[in-house]
Amino acid sequence: MGQTEPSEDLKISLESHLLDTLRPLEAIIPSDLAKTLSSYTCSSPPPTIPYSVLQSVSQWARTTGLDALHSQSPPLDPHAYSMISLLAGTTTSPERKFGAYVPPKGLDEMEAAKAAERKSITALLNALLSIFGCAFAVWWAADRLGWKNEWRVLLALFVAIVIAVTEAILYLLWQSRRSSSTSKRVKSRRKVDPSRHKKDEGPADINPGEKSESITTSVDETTDAGLRRRQ
């Protein structure tokens, strides 16, 4: 039987109804296929069966096995061995662990992320301007005081390092607070608001009696019009 290469790696959960469908075939299918199938339909079957085995059974039932299926007492339905029927109620690759589904971000979350990115860039630019500005101011002040060039450079570097460390600490604190507030905002948005659903249902009837009276009047008018046409 021709088998595609990708299907050999797939495993199908061997459910109880699938076992009841496959076991009657062990006595009528070809010996090589029966031997392979019996290793999965034994008394203590494994939890899965290869997709290729089910595909071979389906191909046999739709081609050379039609007469064998009809000759059984009672006859076996060939449609019960199509791939759609065999895979119904089963799970593909139950032994594999797939990652959790991450829904795409909404428009509000994307806009919030862009705004946070702009704020981060602005904070970094402000930090760089503060570092270079303070270093230049100290260098200029030392020049006015008549310091030597090497002392002026060392003092400017020291001030720049102090300002850089301070700005880095402030930026990390701001970043941690912003991330915590963003996560709380996202969680609150994902919660279901029962009052919102009530609003979406539309305004409630102010006077239900008026609505029932209008419906009754329209029905009576329609009935009278139908009677006039018949006369």
Rank of each mutant, 00 (worst) to 15 (best):
P6F: 11
E15L: 11
D67E: 14
V192P: 02
M1F: 05
L107H: 08
A100R: 07
T222A: 14
G2D: 11
S195T: 15
H70Y: 13
T41Q: 01
S214I: 14
S13E: 02
K148S: 15
P103R: 14
D77H: 09
A27E: 07
L54Q: 02
D200F: 15
L69R: 08
S93W: 03
A115M: 08
G2W: 10
K191I: 14
A34G: 04
A168K: 11
E95M: 09
K198I: 13
L25R: 01
A27P: 06
E213N: 07
L22N: 00
T217W: 05
R196W: 02
E26P: 08
R178C: 04
G133I: 12
K148Q: 13
P47C: 12
T182Q: 05
Q59W: 07
S130T: 14
L18N: 03
R230K: 03
K35P: 07
P47F: 12
A80G: 05
A164I: 08
G133Q: 06
P103K: 10
D77E: 05
L170P: 01
V57P: 00
A141C: 04
P75W: 12
Q59N: 07
E117N: 07
A100L: 06
R23A: 08
G89C: 01
T36F: 03
P104E: 03
W60A: 05
Q59K: 10
G133C: 08
V138E: 01
I49H: 02
E15Y: 10
G209A: 05
V186S: 01
T36W: 04
G209E: 05
N126E: 11
S181D: 06
K97Q: 11
M110P: 02
L19K: 13
A113M: 09
A135L: 04
P104W: 05
G226T: 09
G209T: 13
R196Y: 04
N126V: 14
Y40E: 02
G146H: 03
T21N: 10
F98Y: 14
P194T: 15
K97I: 15
P103M: 10
I131D: 04
I49E: 02
L86Q: 00
V219T: 09
